[in-house]
Design a protein around this nucleic acid. Structure first.
Length: 426
DNA sequence: TCTGGGGTCCTAGGACCC
DNA sequence: TCTGGGGTCCTAGGACCC
């Protein structure tokens, strides 16, 4: 029995080792060299070039535990440079969009494409062309999987990446081929199967994607929820997950950081919390929405004795995206949960109960001009957009401070700062 | 000494309404 | 024909993704 509708064709384009590849684009001497990129505060390894993967470096390895190893093997180390990666991502995505109008930008380094209307050409040829043009224009290597559903396109992509012989492109078509592939595909590598589910499935004798595909509907739904059932159908070639071309507005927005050094003073925390609240405001304004609930949390290191973690959820009198308001209420919340003599290592601010511009509830007791704060924020955002984030900020956010990021191995912002522009010598 | 950050969705269970 | 507490909202918690 075949469920395959040959007229629908999804593709997943995934940048190979994205952060590491971005760094390599601007340092060609790193070609064929091992590269790792670290998380904020140079904490953990979050990206690795193939060479680094082959050395046994793992995603999430704490950097300090690997310091000697990295040095000994002359691994190139970078702090995360999100300005660079974000800009490179835009270049990759706009290149793809130029050739395939139906595109869903799924993450900073992945996009789903709908190739259905483009398969006058053979899909494998088309995918290969896309891969080449992206590499040529941006310098970023990508892998491409093509299949009748998103979940199968993920499978195809996974295999394309791992086998050199299909040159980074794999088209899955026909139920026979799909079954053959799924029979050898570990269930834990499926999109939507994490550690807990894979342990559970293993215990129940399900080790391959094909076994999951063949499990009874009611059993899958009972234990893996409706999401699991959808996944099962998708593995059968029945598309349940449509392409989402316009990202829906976020339902919650947050900003949190681990501090470079522990913070004990209330003043230090006030700076950090103000900065996070202001950032939440920026993000809200970016998607034209307002929030009515703000949550503040602070915590000490969970790896140390005397762990303290607390949060305060506060309802705002009226939905807002005005940074001074958000800062004011966040600091009020901080007062309630702050405990002296703690070495705080992390803090954050979340905003939720988000409404769109038109949905704001007025407040009877609200005073003053509604337009003025709006104009002020628009002006601040415009300056920061042009001159770089943090050019204009509120005094309470402070400058310096032990909580700010450690980024000792930061590469230049080659594509977003004039002063960092790459200089080519003849 | 040193261990990231930002999201999504689903379900169960309780409160409350009729 | 079958003849039963049902429906809605909210929250906490747990799974997942990159």
């Amino acid at each position: 029995m075949s469920f395959i509708k040959p007229d629908v064709l999804f593709s997943l384009v995934d940048c190979n080792n994205f952060y590491a590849s971005c760094e390599r684009v601007f340092s060609p001497k790193l070609e064929h060299k091992a590269i790792v990129v670290l998380s904020n505060n140079d904490g953990c390894i979050v990206a690795r070039s193939n060479e680094a993967k082959r050395m046994g470096l793992k995603m999430g390895d704490p950097a300090y535990q690997r310091k000697d190893f990295l040095k000994k093997h002359e691994v190139a180390i970078f702090s995360s440079n999100y300005a660079l990666y974000g800009d490179m991502s835009e270049r990759v995505m706009s290149t793809l969009a130029e050739f395939v109008p139906e595109i869903e930008i799924y993450s900073i380094d992945e996009a789903f494409l709908n190739l259905t209307s483009l398969v006058q050409q053979k899909p494998d040829k088309l995918a290969l062309q896309l891969k080449e043009i992206v590499k040529k224009r941006t310098g970023i290597p990508v892998s491409i999987g093509v299949a009748p559903t998103k979940t199968l396109a993920k499978v195809a992509n996974h295999l394309a990446k791992r086998s050199a012989e299909n040159s980074g492109v794999l088209v899955l078509s026909g139920d026979c081929q799909i079954r053959r592939v799924l029979e050898n595909f570990p269930v834990e590598d499926l999109w939507g199967i994490g550690l807990q589910y894979s342990k559970f499935l293993e215990k129940n004798g399900i080790k391959t994607a094909l076994q999951l595909r063949n499990a009874p509907d009611y059993w899958v739904k009972k234990h893996l929820t409706i999401m699991g059932l959808r996944m099962k159908y998708e593995l059968q070639g029945i598309s349940c997950l449509p392409l989402e071309m316009a990202p829906p507005p976020k339902k919650g927005i947050g900003c949190s950081r681990t501090f470079r050094e522990a913070v004990e003073s209330k003043e230090g925390l006030r700076e950090a919390i103000s900065t996070f609240a202001a950032r939440c405001g920026e993000k809200l304004r970016q998607q034209n929405s307002y929030s009515k609930v703000i949550t503040v949390f602070i915590r000490t290191s969970p790896f140390q004795k005397g762990y303290y973690c607390n949060c305060k959820v506060a309802e705002l009198p009226t939905a807002t995206n005005y940074s001074p308001d958000l800062i004011r209420y966040a600091l009020k919340a901080l007062e309630i949960i702050y405990k002296a003599n703690c070495r705080y290592k992390k803090a954050g601010v979340f905003v939720s109960d988000i409404t769109t511009v038109g949905g704001v509830q007025g407040n009877l007791f609200e005073r003053g001009d509604r337009e003025k704060p709006k104009k002020l924020m628009a002006a601040v955002d415009a300056v920061n957009e042009r001159m770089g984030r943090g050019t204009l900020f509120f005094a309470v956010q402070g400058i310096g401070g032990e909580w700010r990021l450690k980024q000792e191995k930061l590469s230049p912002c080659y594509t977003t700062k004039w002063k960092d522009l790459l200089v080519v010598r003849g």
